[in-house]
Design a binder for these strands. Structure first.
Length: 326
DNA sequence: ATCCGGACTA
DNA sequence: TAGTCTGGAT
């Protein structure tokens, strides 16, 4: 019912086409199983032009972060204080230099853009929705979806609550998991409307109650939406790289952490709070270009000398002859 | 063919 | 802990 401008972009997400043919049963669900394969893929450096538009004009007030940060730092007087890993500052500095010379797809946090040029309340809501959509989705895809929502005035709790879920689905396509996310958007909008006056929750706990908002996104929303740093935003890159660097471990052991949440808790024990926000874009970009999940490019990493995992994950490719393709 | 800048469920 | 939800990029 909204404008017709997106009707031309309709995709085949209409289930009505498949429900009438009984023969489909034999054909459907041909699903490719994820099989373990020899890591044979060469990782190309991701080179992409990143717009140098740094978001400086946040509608929110700036730092009350730092006061809080230093206050916390000095309160470590308890018995077991965790000491930072050796040379962590050099490592961060080195990664920063690599990042400044190499473009990565990440341009800080993708949903940061969502809130600019909007009034605070609408901006916050946009940040929340953008976070909701952005998981497992490329930033430019997410950005496109946000633009389409914005153009159709579907970026507030009120309008989303009233909108048809199918319409939302079409608008946010092709973000990953768009169907589930459209459903989550409706639920989130209703909750925000009924419990928070159309605004978004202002605490971590309340954000985590929202469907589709987990720890990673909840911290992101606190950081960007409220400018209130409650914890580190840990995604798979931060998780992986911190373990490779030996920066985190399970409490009381030297074992690697097994979940991003464990990583977050471990990292927060020693990383100074000024670094809690910048550590995410720093390591995400680093993880996309150098410290990749598969075959990290230790040869071009300037801090490999300080990394306990350097060159340990490079498989000997001798054992894998080139099979026939396809 | 394989990988995503997660969250949720069994 | 593993499977599932998703389509696009490489």
């Amino acid at each position: 019912m909204l404008t017709s401008k997106f009707s031309s972009a309709k995709r085949e997400i209409n289930p009505s086409t498949e429900s009438k043919n009984p023969e489909d049963d034999s054909v459907q669900k041909v699903r490719v199983f994820v099989r373990k394969k020899r890591a044979k893929k060469t990782v190309q450096p991701i080179v992409e032009v990143v717009k140098p538009e740094i978001v400086d004009q946040k509608p929110c007030s700036l730092p009350e972060i730092e006061d809080f940060a230093y206050g916390k730092q000095s309160s470590y007087s308890r018995s077991n204080e965790v000491q930072p890993p050796a040379n962590w500052e050099k490592v961060i500095e080195g990664i920063r230099k690599m990042r400044s010379s190499e473009d990565a797809p990440v341009d800080s946090m993708g949903c940061e853009k969502a809130g600019v040029s909007l009034p605070p309340k609408e901006g916050r809501f946009a940040v929340l929705i953008s976070s909701l959509l952005s998981s497992q989705t490329k930033d430019h895809v997410n950005h496109g979806a946000i633009q389409r929502l914005l153009q159709n005035d579907l970026l507030t709790a009120e309008t989303i609550d009233k909108a048809d879920e199918g319409v939302i689905k079409e608008l946010i396509y092709p973000v990953g998991f768009y169907s589930r996310k459209a459903s989550n958007m409706k639920k989130v909008a209703k909750i925000c409307l009924e419990k928070y006056g159309g605004d978004i929750p202002s605490t971590l706990e309340e954000l985590l109650q929202l469907p589709g908002i987990g720890p990673k996104m909840a911290h992101l929303v606190m950081n960007v939406g409220w400018n209130n740093v409650q914890g580190i935003c840990v995604d798979t890159h931060v998780h992986r790289i911190c373990n490779r660097l030996g920066w985190v471990s399970r409490l009381g052991t030297k074992q690697k952490t097994s979940t991003p949440e464990q990583t977050r808790e471990s990292l927060q024990l020693w990383l100074p709070k000024e670094e809690w926000v910048p550590i995410n874009p720093l390591l995400v970009g680093f993880g996309q270009t150098v410290c990749t999940p598969l075959r990290p490019r230790c040869g071009m990493c300037t801090v490999s000398g300080l990394c306990p995992s350097a060159f340990t994950e490079t498989p000997s490719l001798s054992a894998t002859p080139k099979k026939n393709k396809r």
